[in-house]
């Protein structure tokens, strides 16, 4: 059976506008999206096709789900196979949440669902109808960074930055849970977030600093 990529049922037709640097020509992201769009256009017939076998399971091509993402209610048609992560990135174009391992081991995809930190790759969006989801895009208030975002900058809590959105979302929850009481506690309670650049000392310092300020 052809293995199709069901992760991207939409989001491939996005225009070049509305991204990080719209005034200065195509951004790296928009170029990547164009390339991805071309590739998945070619694959589109396979992705849309229903299972060929007549004894295949009944599948609805789309399921309706309402998610409240960063305070905005979004009524979505999704494939039941889509994780929250894929809905955020591919359907809602919120690419701040990162796809690292896609198996719950790295923590890069951490978001808050109803205030609790979860790995968004390991849960189906269809299971969360009505849920409130907070992503890295929802932390700042206008131009004012969340205290933990500011602390990550101040304490050099990253190098390449790929794990950072997950680290910060996990850190926000870690502080709210009351688990940021000492460097040792922070290390233990942040251990679901891997940083391959090993910026751990800065991450721990940032979480401790922000915890002390809130």
């Amino acid at each position: 059976m052809t293995k199709t990529n069901h992760d991207a049922p939409s989001g491939n037709e996005r225009s070049l506008s509305g991204h990080d640097a719209p005034q200065r020509g195509p951004s790296r992201r928009s170029i990547l999206q164009m390339a991805g769009g071309a590739a998945s256009l070619a694959a589109a017939p396979a992705a849309i096709a229903q299972p060929a076998s007549s004894e295949g399971p009944p599948t609805a091509p789309t399921t309706r789900v309402r998610l409240v993402v960063n305070g905005s209610a979004r009524d979505l048609k999704i494939d039941p196979r889509q994780s929250i992560l894929d809905v955020l990135r591919e359907t809602l174009d919120l690419t701040g949440t990162k796809k690292g391992c896609n198996q719950g081991a790295c923590g890069a995809c951490t978001v808050l669902v109803n205030g609790r930190r979860v790995t968004s790759c390991l849960t189906l969006a269809v299971m969360h109808d009505g849920a409130e989801i907070t992503t890295i895009e929802g932390l700042a208030r206008g131009d004012e960074l969340h205290p933990l975002q500011a602390a990550f900058i101040e304490h050099d809590g990253f190098q390449c930055g790929f794990c950072t959105p997950g680290q910060i979302m996990s850190g926000v929850a870690c502080i709210a849970e009351g688990h940021a009481t000492s460097p040792e506690q922070i290390q233990f309670w942040m251990s679901g977030n891997i940083c391959r650049c090993a910026a751990y000392p800065g991450i721990v310092a940032a979480v401790a600093d922000a915890a002390g300020r809130t």
Partner: peptide, 9 residues
Amino acid sequence: GASPQLRNM
């Protein structure tokens, strides 16, 4: 066991 995120789920 596991991580805080996984224990929440």
